[in-house]
């Protein structure tokens, strides 16, 4: 018999309870059990970063965690990054303004990663930002729009 567990976790401020096979990754659980498909699976071996979510505020690979390990924790996905009133966060705004995405597949990982990184490193410069997203592969943009967006968002966040 498949090994399953009941899992309760908070996603984007909302509590969810569901049964999952213990071998299910957190990423697959978010996407297919809860139906939040904004998190993307690009490699399922920890390198591309598309699946990055915030676990208790820290950026982690959701393909390298079992859903059962998130039991009792708080998860934030791309769907939960906007401000409480539904307006875009400064980082989302900046991605839009600076053409920080093309196909949008890497975008959830870029946004979650940079949200955590800029919170911890509000003064980050270009080199630091590039290192911070070295664990997030983008095949489309050449990274420049993303880096520009992050630099701009950092500025906005500091002014705001």
């Amino acid at each position: 018999m498949a090994d399953t567990r009941d899992i309760t976790l908070t996603v984007n401020g909302e509590s969810h309870t569901a049964t999952a096979e213990t071998r299910t990754s957190l990423g697959d659980f978010l996407r297919h059990t809860i139906g939040l498909t904004g998190t993307h699976m690009g490699c399922e071996h920890g390198v591309c970063g598309a699946c990055t979510v915030l676990l208790d505020g820290e950026a982690v690979r959701s393909c390298l965690m079992l859903a059962v390990q998130a039991n009792g924790h708080e998860v934030t996905t791309i769907e939960g990054l906007a401000n409480a009133d539904g307006t875009l966060s400064p980082l989302q705004e900046a991605f839009w303004e600076h053409h920080g995405l093309q196909c949008g597949f890497c975008t959830p990982g870029m946004l979650t990663s940079l949200t955590a990184f800029l919170r911890d490193h509000p003064d980050a410069d270009e080199k630091e930002i590039r290192e911070a997203i070295s664990g997030n592969i983008c095949r489309c943009t050449g990274y420049q729009g993303i880096v520009n967006a992050a630099l701009d968002a950092a500025k906005t966040m500091q002014e705001g």
Binding site: I78, L88, F95
Partner: peptide, 10 residues
């Protein structure tokens, strides 16, 4: 295209 994609609604 972007508002959809940056909010996870692609």
């Amino acid at each position: 295209e972007d508002p959809r994609l940056i909010t996870g609604h692609g």
